[in-house]
Design a protein around this nucleic acid. Sequence first.
DNA 1: GAACCGCGTTCGTATTCGTGAACTGAGTTC
DNA 2: GAACTCAGTTCACGAATACGAACGCGGTTC
Lengths: 260, 260
Amino acid sequence: MTQTSADSTPSTVKSAARALDLLDEIALRGPGTQLQLSSRMGIPKSSLHALVRTMVVKGWLETDPTGTVYKLGMHCLVASSAYLDGDAVLARAAPILDEVAAATQETVHLGRLDGDHVIYTGKRESVHPLRMHSAVGRRLPAYSTALGRAILAEMPVEQRAALVPTDIKAMTPHTTVTKDEVLEIIDTAAVQGYATESEESCLGVRCFGVTLPFTRHATDAMSVSVPISRLGDGRQDMIIETLLAARAKLAATADWSASV
Amino acid sequence: MTQTSADSTPSTVKSAARALDLLDEIALRGPGTQLQLSSRMGIPKSSLHALVRTMVVKGWLETDPTGTVYKLGMHCLVASSAYLDGDAVLARAAPILDEVAAATQETVHLGRLDGDHVIYTGKRESVHPLRMHSAVGRRLPAYSTALGRAILAEMPVEQRAALVPTDIKAMTPHTTVTKDEVLEIIDTAAVQGYATESEESCLGVRCFGVTLPFTRHATDAMSVSVPISRLGDGRQDMIIETLLAARAKLAATADWSASV
DNA sequence: GAACCGCGTTCGTATTCGTGAACTGAGTTC
DNA sequence: GAACTCAGTTCACGAATACGAACGCGGTTC
């Protein structure tokens, strides 16, 4: 299913796809000159020329003061804001996010599956000075984050396997890098009802995640990120229980789980 | 308009422009079916068909559970996050935003000019329960906001006039709707060194704005939004002085005002 | 049940775009 | 100051798109 990439999709618009790819490319690997972008994306520079001009005119790209380096434009912000405004899940989950943040006093994230990554759609920041740096819109591998693992844990086993690559690059010395081990961890998460990750994406930070029970196959999840130094005295259990309670509360009001 | 091809921009890519226009259209006026979007944008539906499919595949559009209504996709979030991450002005201004927020205890916005609108690029929320609802990425008319007026006030007079429309639609009963009056207000702001707006975009709220002195012709500004009920006891003067002090502090460290 | 929406989809052709190669022009090197 | 590099720009032609019209399809209305 979903024979996405190559030529199985009969009619797609090449230049539109390129415009979007260009935005993704700059978002992922940073700004560049026409020539650099051309080589990074494998597009002839003469083709890029008209494209970047169009995108600058429309406000989706901007240039340096020098006029040679192209970066993202402000319209990205407008689109993002509109996306968040129109998101029903976000609206429903916001009060619960507040509750969890208040109960744990730690950084809370809301995220959604996008391919084999998760993208943060909301957050509440810890009040402590020592806290994780993050932002709405950040894109992280699903298999290495508690938030993503919670979502994967609700999938059929074969689907999980498809979303965990065999070649995992370590983000920290603690990152689990073998596919089988990750799948085992996800399996444990499926049994427990919550997912965990300890210093695998950020040194010194442990995360706990649960899905939002809005749809049959969850695409959204929330997580709490805590510096390990603050995890003594049964605080870990408190956080996990807070998450599970939040999940239960959402499930009780889930009246529209009709989709998918 | 813009249907006649007598433009001075000879080579722009039509389908790329349409893809971006589609994102803007949905961001501005909300989701819709192919047919609705087709009529809203004046594009043949058969042309839109391949376009929306491309954009859905790329993750920049999504459909309803029903599959008929098209809305923005998650990649908008990723782009927005990358835009903010790479913004030098934002990075420089962030600590000052914090300071102003701490000193005033009110909602503070950072914004940037985009045509005749301003787009919020940052904010700090008031701690008070009564506070303005806003979000990074929101787009508002420059001429009716304190933030935008501050920017306009640093422009040559003829340029100001070009960015204030003759036909202003009132957002509240207090909105200044005649162009001349708005220009006068901006003129006052230019003399004072800060801009003001009282209940013109949000009933019960007064805003004060100053530009960020990073470039010769400012494109960025910050503003404080206060419920009028909290403006007694010389608090208005305190807020204005806080803003002017913040501006002065930034100006003192502005070593890179070489551009434009 | 036939006509009628509103929805998305397909098709063939005229139109437009994408592309390699050639060109300008500013900085740098030798 | 000639040669070199890196940046953007232009052009003509083959390749891909855009579009009007027709089709399929599930509802709703008469």
